[in-house]
């Protein structure tokens, strides 16, 4: 495979896209990109681009989703066919996408003041327009902005970044080739209080180091 030949860090200490280890990709945020949604935003981090629309608080579309004392949060994730995930077409019911959606929902459930909106639904639609690693962190950043745009009460911002570990060197904001080769941790934090609402990884790593790095990443964002 070509990815195994990829040099994660070269002799000069630069990554394959000439970034330094703690350097984020070029980032742009725009709000209110979708006129008919209550809130929307598009976040581009490097070659990853995610567009999020938020509808609500509104009457729940499904009766089963009604909770009498707070709002329910529904997340739907879709990947554009041309996004370039390398995989075959993903439909809405896809396992991996459901997982991303569940992660976003779990991230925002404690942050959105759902008790203010009883018996209603906050619907979050995530569309991955182009994928080059870090779909989940970009989606979380975009969702925060879309929720702010929608005027929904939040306890704090949520910022998220992916962190990889190459030998002993941590790397921030991984691109797709790096994500394939390295153990990856996704952290979502509240910069105001320093709390962490999501930490997702598939390998075992030392957390202290990453919390420190997350703050670095939040500042850079």
């Amino acid at each position: 495979m070509s990815s195994s030949r990829l040099e994660i860090l070269n002799d000069g200490g630069l990554r394959h896209d000439a970034r330094r280890p703690y350097e984020l990709r070029s980032t742009s945020f725009s709000l209110g990109t979708h006129p008919t949604a209550d809130g929307s935003s598009t976040v581009t981090q490097g070659l990853t681009s995610v567009s999020v629309t938020v509808f609500g608080p509104r009457e729940p579309k499904q009766r089963a989703g009604v909770t009498h004392d707070r709002a329910s949060i529904v997340v739907e994730v879709g990947v554009a066919l041309w996004a370039g995930t390398g995989a075959q077409r993903r439909t809405r019911g896809d396992k991996r996408l459901m997982e991303v959606g569940a992660a976003i929902r779990q991230t925002f459930e404690p942050v959105i003041m759902t008790q203010l909106y009883p018996r209603s639904e906050i619907f979050i639609n995530v569309q991955v327009i182009s994928a080059d690693g870090g779909i989940l962190p970009s989606s979380i950043n975009a969702t925060t902005l879309a929720l702010i745009d929608a005027g929904i009460s939040l306890l704090d911002y949520v910022t998220s970044v992916s962190i990889g570990l190459h030998l002993t060197q941590p790397l921030l904001d991984l691109s797709a080739p790096e994500e394939n080769d390295l153990p990856t941790l996704v952290v979502a934090s509240l910069p105001g209080s320093g709390k962490i609402t999501l930490a997702q990884m598939e390998t075992r790593l030392h957390v202290d180091r990453f919390e420190e790095m997350l703050l670095l990443g939040v500042e850079a964002g």
Partner: peptide, 8 residues
């Protein structure tokens, strides 16, 4: 109180 710029 804070009135959101945009809301339902």
């Amino acid at each position: 109180s804070v009135k959101p710029l945009k809301s339902r």
